[in-house]
């Protein structure tokens, strides 16, 4: 059992938790993920490590409430326990030798982009951050990103905060201004990563994406998380989650991520109704 030491609601659909998991915290690196089960009968879901504190023994997770499991997780509070919490899994992000990087985050993907931006900043790399959200109510980690970025572009779809437009508009602007990036790191919805990669391919900028497909065990056992990368099948859990974005078959990944959408929607509704009944 893994105790929740801190809970912070970042916006109506995104929550942060610090979870006491000292063995995981001792080893975790940016880019890695954990798998958790909320309760005894829960499903296993992967969440990327948003931050870690080796001394306090905590792992920070940031999650969007999209389905039944994240709904249940969000109903837990400080002092409550998560039933299972295993990690760190996957290969850490490569940050060595980078001098100038554009970090692109979309929505809750910013939670994963942040520890990488922070690590790059701490390594002395010039970090240009572009983060995008649907509107100003959904903005997360603005102060945190400001602290670790040499340039910060905040985009919203409706222009209610920052600049109106997509992250690709801002990235194109920076590239056109003449910034030469060693690498672009894009983390967010699959569609966003796909379009970032299309753009950077034109300019020949190496681009790394973080994939978060459906998985069960997270150790290479089920193969449910397989992706096509450069024409070869890869398992996101052990070969990734970071991949060369120019080689990832995003259309296949988008289709695969929708495999259980009907089930998930129905399950989420059931869970919400249960919680409503409890309140009444």
């Amino acid at each position: 059992m893994y105790k929740i030491l801190r809970k912070e609601v970042l916006n109506p659909t995104v929550t942060l938790m610090d979870v006491y998991a000292p063995l995981v915290a001792k080893k975790a690196e940016p880019g890695q993920f954990i798998i958790l089960r909320v309760d005894e009968n829960g499903e296993r879901i992967p969440l990327t490590v948003a931050d870690f504190d080796r001394e306090a023994g905590t792992i920070t997770i940031i999650f969007q409430i999209v389905g039944s499991t994240t709904e249940k997780l969000n109903h837990l509070n400080e002092g409550d326990y998560i039933h299972d919490f295993v990690g760190p899994l996957g290969v850490p992000s490569h940050t060595e030798g980078l001098k100038k990087v554009a970090v692109v985050g979309g929505g809750v993907g910013c939670a994963i982009a942040y520890p990488i931006a922070k690590k790059l900043h701490n390594l002395g790399c010039e970090v240009h951050t572009i983060i995008g959200f649907r509107n100003k109510d959904l903005v997360i980690l603005e102060d945190e990103f400001t602290a670790v970025s040499d340039v910060l572009e905040l985009m919203t779809d409706d222009g209610s905060h920052g600049t109106k437009g997509l992250v690709t508009n801002a990235l194109l602007g920076l590239i056109e201004e003449g910034h030469n990036y060693d690498q672009v790191i894009a983390i967010g919805p699959l569609v966003m990563m796909k379009f970032v990669c299309q753009l950077t391919k034109q300019y020949g900028i190496p681009t790394v994406v973080s994939m978060n497909p459906i998985m069960i065990d997270g150790t290479g056992m089920c193969g449910g998380c397989r992706l096509t990368v450069g024409g070869q099948t890869k398992f996101a859990c052990v070969d990734g989650p970071d991949f060369d974005g120019h080689l990832v078959d995003f259309d296949e990944a988008i289709e695969r991520s929708s495999m259980y959408r009907g089930f998930e929607r129905q399950k989420h509704e059931e869970t919400c109704n249960l919680f409503k009944k409890e309140v009444q």
Partner: peptide, 14 residues
């Protein structure tokens, strides 16, 4: 093999 509806026996049984 990466179509939706293709499982490894491991995934299906797990």
């Amino acid at each position: 093999e990466n179509l939706k509806g293709v499982y490894s026996a491991n995934e299906f049984l797990t």
